[in-house]
Amino acid sequence: MTEISWEDPFCGEGNNCFRIGTDSDGNAYIAVAGQEDTYLTDTREALATLIRDIKAGKADHLLP
């Protein structure tokens, strides 16, 4: 099993908190804080773009 190193949670204005993680192979992960066993994985660049869009309010419809 891949060991994921999670960063501190990023919390938006509501109760939506996300965590970004990476592994030793350079893969990136994103998960809802507290539910790190259920995550999405993609390239670090793709997830960074997603986070920037969420912060910019472009992806509010994706928030749980």
Rank of each mutant, 00 (worst) to 15 (best):
D53T: 04
I54D: 00
Q35A: 12
D60V: 01
R44F: 04
L47K: 01
A48T: 10
D37C: 08
C17Q: 03
P9T: 10
R19M: 05
E45G: 06
G26Y: 09
D25I: 03
T22N: 13
W6R: 13
D42T: 09
R44D: 08
A59I: 02
Q35W: 13
C17D: 04
A48R: 08
D8K: 13
E7L: 14
G34K: 10
I51M: 14
R52K: 09
I51L: 13
F10S: 14
T22L: 09
P9G: 12
G14D: 10
E3Q: 08
L40E: 15
C17L: 04
F10Y: 12
G34L: 08
D8S: 14
F10V: 15
L63G: 07
D37P: 04
G26W: 06
W6C: 15
D53F: 01
E36P: 12
K55C: 05
D23Y: 01
I51S: 07
L63H: 06
Y29C: 03
I4Y: 01
N27V: 07
L63P: 06
G34A: 11
K58M: 09
T41L: 08
S24T: 04
E7A: 15
I4K: 07
L62Y: 01
L47F: 01
T38D: 12
R19A: 03
K55F: 02
A31K: 03
D53N: 11
I20T: 14
L62I: 01
M1E: 12
D8Y: 03
C11S: 14
A46L: 06
R44K: 15
E7K: 15
D42K: 13
G34S: 10
C11W: 08
A48W: 00
H61A: 05
T49I: 10
T38L: 11
L63Y: 04
K58S: 12
E13M: 00
N16R: 04
T41I: 07
D23R: 02
T38K: 09
L50W: 07
R44M: 07
T22D: 10
A56V: 00
C17H: 04
R44H: 10
